[in-house]
Computed example of a mutant assay.
Amino acid sequence: MPIREILQLGHPVLRQIAQPVPDPTAPAVADLVTDLADTVGHWRDTTGYGRAIAAPQIGELQRVILLRLPGQPVWPLINPSIIDYSPEKLVVWDACLSFLSIFMQVERYEWITVRYQDLLGQWHETRAGREDDLAELLQHEIDHLDGTLSIDRMVDVKSLCSREEFERQHRADSPYAQK
């Protein structure tokens, strides 16, 4: 499948709400997952960034996200939703393939439980926490499905910085560090 263009900050589709996938077993959904995997893999290979992607980022308003974590198989989540979350929150660095030139600090739940379907239509639940920064990553991608961007969750405009400055000061201690 082709590497798809990633929509950039300001594109109106990024602010729209994605629709539920009625049949996760449909061939079109498998094709979408392949496009997402190829696209995020390309970005990871060429920029060093890209652990996950949401379907709206490639112009598909469907509730599909894909995680491509280093050393792990690709993990598609169809119709994901957060069904539980910690009372505790934490502040983390966030970036996005839809505006990779800027980084900011955002507030996220320390842990979440996500309910989702796989490509066979089976329902699953997973609890994600700080390990591999999975909780913050899933929250970021699920936000995309609701038309919410990390800049909407910025805790302080003074945390906003360029990619170059983030790399100089913060990358080594972040989930974006090369692994």
Results as ranks from 00 to 15, higher is better:
residue 109 Y to R: 13
residue 121 G to P: 07
residue 137 L to N: 01
residue 150 S to V: 07
residue 108 R to Y: 07
residue 122 Q to Y: 08
residue 121 G to K: 08
residue 151 I to A: 01
residue 112 I to G: 00
residue 121 G to W: 07
residue 108 R to H: 11
residue 117 Q to C: 11
residue 130 R to W: 11
residue 104 M to I: 14
residue 122 Q to N: 15
residue 110 E to Q: 11
residue 140 H to W: 05
residue 129 G to Q: 09
residue 119 L to G: 02
residue 119 L to R: 07
residue 105 Q to I: 02
residue 125 E to W: 02
residue 124 H to N: 06
residue 155 V to Q: 08
residue 142 I to T: 01
residue 111 W to P: 10
residue 150 S to T: 04
residue 99 F to H: 14
residue 144 H to R: 07
residue 126 T to Y: 00
residue 127 R to D: 08
residue 134 L to S: 14
residue 110 E to Y: 09
residue 154 M to F: 00
residue 98 S to D: 03
residue 112 I to K: 02
residue 151 I to H: 02
residue 132 D to R: 15
residue 149 L to V: 00
residue 122 Q to R: 15
residue 107 E to S: 09
residue 131 E to K: 13
residue 122 Q to C: 11
residue 113 T to E: 11
residue 115 R to F: 11
residue 143 D to M: 08
residue 143 D to P: 08
residue 123 W to M: 13
residue 119 L to Q: 06
residue 153 R to S: 02
residue 97 L to P: 06
residue 132 D to P: 07
residue 124 H to E: 03
residue 107 E to P: 05
residue 142 I to D: 00
residue 133 D to Y: 15
residue 147 G to K: 00
residue 136 E to L: 06
residue 126 T to R: 01
residue 150 S to E: 02
residue 148 T to E: 08
residue 138 L to V: 11
residue 152 D to S: 07
residue 103 F to V: 14
residue 135 A to W: 12
residue 152 D to E: 06
residue 101 S to Q: 08
residue 127 R to W: 12
residue 143 D to E: 08
residue 133 D to S: 15
residue 122 Q to H: 14
residue 157 V to D: 12
residue 101 S to R: 05
residue 120 L to D: 15
residue 133 D to G: 15
residue 144 H to C: 04
residue 111 W to N: 12
residue 102 I to Q: 09
residue 105 Q to Y: 02
residue 106 V to Y: 12
residue 130 R to Y: 12
residue 130 R to S: 14
residue 120 L to V: 07
residue 103 F to S: 10
residue 111 W to V: 09
residue 154 M to S: 11
residue 130 R to V: 14
residue 111 W to Y: 15
residue 141 E to H: 02
residue 147 G to R: 01
residue 100 L to Q: 06
residue 142 I to V: 01
residue 110 E to C: 13
residue 144 H to I: 05
residue 114 V to R: 04
residue 122 Q to M: 09
